[in-house]
């Protein structure tokens, strides 16, 4: 006690106390107010079917029907499973911005809790692919980049391009880029086959291979542009554009300068 009181009047005592007090309050507050950072699967487990139904009736039923039976402009959702709902709604594709060619990725309309409730509701209508849990998505541990690259080139590159940058399909449809997509959504896309994409069932691409694909995609995302500016990784078109604009532009500029100097 005596030792402590010796420092009581130290000039650093007041600021130190203030920092300690702030830390204490902050820690207490964060512990008290924290909601556990649940995965989509965990959220889905705790969400209620009834809540999901209410959201569905408000936001989705005008196209998909009051009982999710589908209609003239939207497909039936009976049996599409929670994975499909999670993919479409959590990436912002549903609800659609417009009814043109295809739903595009945008800022999600619903919170993760609302998406989980919707997923539970749709899954309750008929069995379908479930949302893959985090224990299933351990691609860092279970995947192989080299295998994933080969699988990607065999199954995905014809639409999504060799580097996963996306590509054009017929009539204005397109395969979106797979860069920056959450592993869960990549997995869900493979098992549900959204929009123009085919379903890659576990018999065609095993769960382990799916993780390899995800691992390769994540690798491609973070891979530095080894040869300099990547020019979009879409092949020779941008290379041709560069050489016809900047490239020959510089050289013609130099030629003009060289011919000017002689005067």
């Amino acid at each position: 006690m005596k030792r402590l009181s010796k420092y009581r009047r130290h000039r650093a005592a007041a600021p130190m106390l203030l920092v300690l007090a702030l830390l204490a309050i902050g820690t207490t507050f964060s512990v008290a107010s924290a909601t556990p950072n649940k995965s989509a699967l965990a959220l889905a487990r705790s969400a209620s079917i009834e809540e999901g139904k209410q959201i569905f009736l408000k936001g989705c039923s005008s196209c998909h029907g009051l009982n999710a039976e589908g209609g003239a402009i939207a497909p039936s959702l009976i049996g599409v499973g929670a994975a499909s709902v999670d993919f479409q709604v959590a990436t912002g594709r549903m609800p659609m911005a417009d009814m043109s060619t295809q739903a595009m990725r945008k800022k999600p309309v619903y919170t993760p809790e609302q998406v989980a409730a919707l997923a539970v509701y749709v899954a309750s209508l008929a069995p379908g692919p479930a949302i893959p849990g985090d224990e299933l998505l351990n691609y860092e541990r279970d995947g192989s980049v080299a295998d994933g690259g080969e699988l990607f080139r065999n199954n995905c590159a014809m639409c999504h391009n060799f580097a996963g940058q996306g590509g054009a399909l017929t009539q204005g449809k397109y395969a979106p880029t797979v860069m920056g997509v959450e592993p869960r959504h990549i997995y869900e896309a493979m098992i549900t086959g959204p929009q123009s994409m085919p379903v890659f069932s576990d018999k065609i691409i095993t769960p382990e291979e799916k993780l390899s694909i995800i691992k390769w995609i994540k690798f491609a995302e973070s891979e530095p542009a080894l040869g300099g500016a990547s020019l979009g990784r879409v092949g020779p078109v941008t290379e041709g554009l560069l050489v016809w604009t900047l490239g020959i532009g510089i050289l013609i500029g130099v030629a003009v300068w060289l011919a000017m100097k002689a005067r």
């Binding site: 060799f162 092949g235 078109v237 016809w244």
Partner: peptide, 8 residues
């Protein structure tokens, strides 16, 4: 691959 192109 999607977008397979020749040089310009």
């Amino acid at each position: 691959s999607a977008g397979s192109q020749p040089d310009w």
